[in-house]
Design a binder for these strands. Structure first.
Length: 387
RNA sequence: GCGGGAGUAGCUCAGUUGGCAGAGCACCGGGUUGUGGUCCCGGGUGUCGCGGGUUCGAAUCCCGUCUCUCGCCCCA
């Protein structure tokens, strides 16, 4: 019994689910292609190092959520928990840093050992984009616009709002981090256990705490925005100006910080109320420090990833399959003829299904059930089956 | 990883103080309808999530466990 059900946190995509997933992936691919992005498919597993080095030794993903194993030759491998590290690794592996900028789209499964919840699976799917080699804020604007275009194309942008913030450049972020740590350390006794832990590992994330006591402390904390240096402010202003010009609505979210260490400057989340606690549907930001951290020449980057299962839940209806023409043999010996007719119909661009077993009466019932548009029969060639 | 809620037929769900496991839909078989949607007849299709315990007797009470789910955490 236990072997006959899916592993915790995994699920099957039946026909309906698969049409939803393909709609999302194909829509995302089409939009990315419209912006001139090519598709990249990196391996589903990489050396553990690829993720451990890039995601930061203190991130939850690295410390407790990775599916890591040793293969038969003793290599330490990890199922990808996200795809940015893989893209950057591919950039370096293939010498693509000689041909910047690189603009890519990807889609595929990711794996994280988390406690499953609606919209949070252990094998889940993402579509995403990355732009490497562009330091200008124009790239940030374009990338956010693409996210907006995707949600609009899926018809769900009405339920989603863009939250936007800037972490500033590395200097600004570092300067603020010191100030924040000092401030929080002086108020340790008022922080939750979770936030004390964050204070050690990733202090900026305390800003995002949902604990009421933490929020009081955070409300009076020095603001990140005030510690941005002049270039960082100018950069963020340019992003906002661009979004305004493109009429992309957003909301400034001064407390929005991302969990992964490599983010700089722009950070954003497309959030919905409709999915409860797992309401972030698409998120990303700029990661100018990442390529260098992986051992390449310093190269700016920005991108986002969207959760396919979460988008699927926002989609009102699964796109219907094309209505078929049902071909029903009049008698057993006409079966081959039915297959032949069906092939001709397909050549002519129809979806055609043959009743492969059973009586004519059963075949007609089947034709109704599958919503057939017409049923070829003799003596007349076709006759409407329903609508 | 932490705290709550829930698991009964393929689906949605009833099941009283512990006393023969049920309904609707779906499905299967047969018939009717000019070879079709309607209709009629017949069929319950089940490890009551799983494993223990209490009891003459457990879907029901107790313990454990698994899964889903809500929140936290984390994040897409």
């Amino acid at each position: 019994m236990s072997a006959l059900r899916p592993v915790r946190g995994t699920r099957d995509f039946l026909a309906d689910d698969s049409r939803r997933r393909r709609l999302i992936e194909e829509t995302a691919l089409a939009i990315a292609a419209g912006y001139g992005y090519g598709e990249i498919a990196t391996p589903i597993f990489e050396f553990t190092e690829v993720f451990a080095r890039t995601l930061g030794d203190t991130s939850d993903i690295v410390t407790k959520e990775m599916y890591t194993f040793e293969d038969r030759s003793g290599e330490r491998l990890t199922l990808r928990p996200e795809n940015t590290a893989g893209v950057v690794r591919a950039l370096l592996s293939n010498g693509l840093d000689q041909a910047l900028p690189l603009k890519v789209f990807y889609a595929g499964p990711m794996f994280r050992y988390e406690r499953p919840q609606k919209g949070r699976l252990r094998q889940f799917h993402q579509v995403g984009i990355e732009v490497l080699g562009i330091a200008d804020a124009l790239a940030d604007v374009e990338v956010i616009a693409m996210g907006f275009d995707l949600l609009a194309a899926l018809g769900v942008q009405g339920t989603v709002i863009v939250e936007l913030n800037s972490l500033g450049d590395a200097d600004s972020r570092e300067a603020y981090r010191h100030v924040l740590v000092d401030y929080l350390s002086a108020r340790r006794e008022r922080l939750s256990a979770d936030s004390l832990n964050r204070l050690e590992r990733n202090p900026l994330r305390v800003l995002d705490s949902k604990d009421a006591g933490d929020r009081e402390v955070v409300a009076a904390a020095p603001a990140l925005g005030e510690f941005l240096n002049a270039p960082s402010r100018a950069f963020f202003a340019r992003v906002c100006e661009g979004l305004d010009a493109l009429a992309i609505p957003y909301r400034l979210a001064p407390r929005l910080v991302r969990g992964l260490d490599y983010y700089t400057h722009t950070t954003f989340e497309f959030v919905t109320e409709a999915l409860g606690a797992q309401g972030t549907v698409l998120a990303g930001g700029r990661y100018d420090g990442l390529v260098a951290q992986m051992g390449g020449r310093p190269t700016p980057g920005i991108g986002w990833a969207a959760g396919v299962e979460r988008l699927m839940m926002l989609l009102a209806d699964a796109p219907p399959p094309r209505r078929p023409v049902a071909v029903i043999p009049f008698a057993a010996e006409q079966g081959i003829a039915a297959l032949t007719i069906a092939r001709r119909l397909r050549t002519a661009g129809h979806v055609a299904e043959v009743s492969l077993a059973g009586t004519v009466g059963k075949g007609m019932k089947w034709a109704n059930r599958i919503g057939a548009r017409a049923v070829p029969r003799s003596p007349s060639p076709v006759r409407s089956a329903r609508g």
